[in-house]
């Protein structure tokens, strides 16, 4: 993993530099106009958030039952990244909404889902920060329940109201749009991997530093 990290980070850098050009060259969508291009960033950030939630939930479960500091660090990193990618979705979503629905915020199903999940994982960060000793277990509970609640949030909010473009757009994308779209999805997923690695390494170094402080006291 360590050897692959440098090239991987470089690849992600190149992909994000190239992305605007790829997106600009994608076909112009006539009904939505230019704002449709947000789609190439909005949907991939959504994919990345769900992946991060999945990683966080599974790592939390492992930490809870196996008491593994490694899994705890992974859960912490993934939880923070779920918030980060969720934030990207929450910023790009209303930008689209302003143009397509005429208002910045709509109580649309998917926007509301994103907001709820965002809140859940922010609460995970808060409990780590303010919960005192043993808050890793509390954060693990948030991670596990956050993952378990995801399908319910999805289902409940979806029935509650939806005016969102349906997920079925993705498979029906024209070939000319699908290329740039999947390019962006890969870029976001690789970015997730890179950031996750960085954050986990940071956590591992903090833990190593803590050990050194403990050894120093002896």
């Amino acid at each position: 993993m360590k050897k692959a990290f440098g090239p991987l980070a470089a690849l992600v850098g190149v992909m994000f530099v190239a992305a605007p050009f790829v997106v600009a060259n994608a076909p112009y969508e006539s009904t939505m106009g230019l704002v449709q291009k947000i789609f190439y960033f909005h949907v991939p950030s959504w994919f990345a958030m769900f992946t991060a939630i999945g990683i966080c939930g599974v790592a939390s479960l492992y930490h809870l039952f196996k008491n593994s500091p490694k899994a705890d660090r992974l859960a912490e990193a993934a939880g923070e990244l779920a918030v980060l990618f969720g934030l990207m979705g929450l910023v790009t979503g209303p930008l689209w909404g302003r143009k397509s629905w005429g208002v910045w915020w709509q109580w649309d199903a998917k926007l509301t889902i994103a907001l709820l999940l965002e809140m859940t994982f922010i609460s995970g960060i808060l409990v780590r920060k303010y919960g005192g000793p043993g808050s890793d277990k509390l954060a693990a509970a948030v991670g596990i329940f956050g993952l378990a609640v995801t399908p319910f949030v999805y289902e409940a909010v979806n029935i509650w109201r939806t005016i969102h473009p349906l997920t079925s757009v993705v498979p029906t994308l024209s070939a000319a749009m699908a290329g740039p779209f999947w390019f962006c999805v890969s870029a976001f997923m690789l970015l997730l991997v890179v950031l996750l690695t960085l954050r986990v390494n940071l956590g591992a170094r903090q833990a190593a530093l803590d050990e050194l402080y403990l050894a120093q006291e002896d």
Binding site: P133, D210, L214, E217, D218
Partner: peptide
């Protein structure tokens, strides 16, 4: 047994 940087038992 330790809590981060605070050691309770070693």
């Amino acid at each position: 047994r330790h809590f981060g940087r605070r050691r309770a038992l070693a």
